[in-house]
């Protein structure tokens, strides 16, 4: 395989490598911090999956807003770079969304008694997952780069509407899923410091991994585009 000529936009830069490296160190640190956090008064050690589930869910939600930003930027400025970043964000968000659903199911079985139930939070999250899958499929289906970018931007913008609905679903409707432990709308935190701090380490680490992976994926997309043009 011949690599495309490198240019300032598609060279693997030290910033991306640094973010990814720090993120991976953070994930390892966060894992040990989570595994040494105390058990929860009612759930025992099962509640430790909180340290994975919540940061992953936040990344999955954040992906939708970041993709929204890049999609709007593309529609305004028509720069292929923004389209590639939007696509990279949704792909990374798709992975985090899948992991959110998986960790959630593994947590639900021992606590709620079932892996899955069609309750509002889970249903709206499944819809968001389907929208991310739809975004990737739409991109694959359309050959013309400009039309592809416009259609994908439309999906990303419409998909972002579902994020606040999913986030607020546990408050707006009766649900099986508990309400937010760290409520971003009121600022209330119902988590002991000894359990909260390891979760914040994980949150920071996953944020770095999230940003690093998006940059890396966009770099690869830029190289692919450069090779197609050549």
């Amino acid at each position: 395989m011949q690599l495309a000529r490198s240019s300032p936009t598609n060279r693997l830069d030290y910033l991306t490598l640094g973010i990814l490296g720090l993120g991976i160190i953070g994930v390892v640190w966060g894992f040990f911090a989570a595994m040494s956090s105390p058990p929860d008064q009612s759930q025992g050690y099962v509640a430790r999956i909180f340290h994975l589930h919540v940061p992953m869910a936040w990344m999955a939600y954040a992906a939708s807003f970041v993709a929204l930003g890049y999609s709007v930027a593309y529609l305004v400025r028509r720069k292929a770079h923004h389209d590639r970043l939007a696509a990279a964000t949704v792909e990374v968000g798709l992975i985090f969304m899948a992991l959110t659903l998986l960790t959630g199911m593994l947590w639900a079985r021992p606590t709620w008694g079932v892996y899955w139930d069609w309750e509002p939070r889970l249903t709206t999250t499944a819809i968001l997952f389907a929208i991310y899958v739809g975004y990737v499929v739409v991109r694959g289906a359309i050959e013309d780069p400009e039309l592809r970018a416009k259609a994908a931007a439309g999906v990303a913008i419409l998909g972002a509407i579902n994020v606040p609905i999913s986030y607020m679903s546990v408050k707006w409707w009766r649900s099986l899923h508990q309400t937010q432990s760290i409520d971003l709308t009121t600022g209330k935190i119902n988590v002991d410091a000894a359990i909260l701090i390891p979760m914040l380490i994980n949150l920071a680490a996953f944020t770095l991994v999230f940003i690093g992976l998006i940059r890396l994926r966009a770099l690869i997309a830029a190289r692919e585009a450069a090779r197609e043009e050549a």
């Binding site: 929860d40 009612s42 509640a47 909180f50 079932v114 432990s181 119902n190 002991d192 359990i195």
Partner: peptide, 27 residues
């Protein structure tokens, strides 16, 4: 199906080691 609360709290001072052991084994 069992609902659980959104609060996560470590066992506090005053919990006996026996109670903590029961919590860990019971869950």
């Amino acid at each position: 199906l069992v609902k659980h609360s959104e609060t996560y709290q470590a066992p506090k001072e005053g919990w006996t080691p026996e109670e903590v052991r029961k919590l860990i084994e019971g869950t």
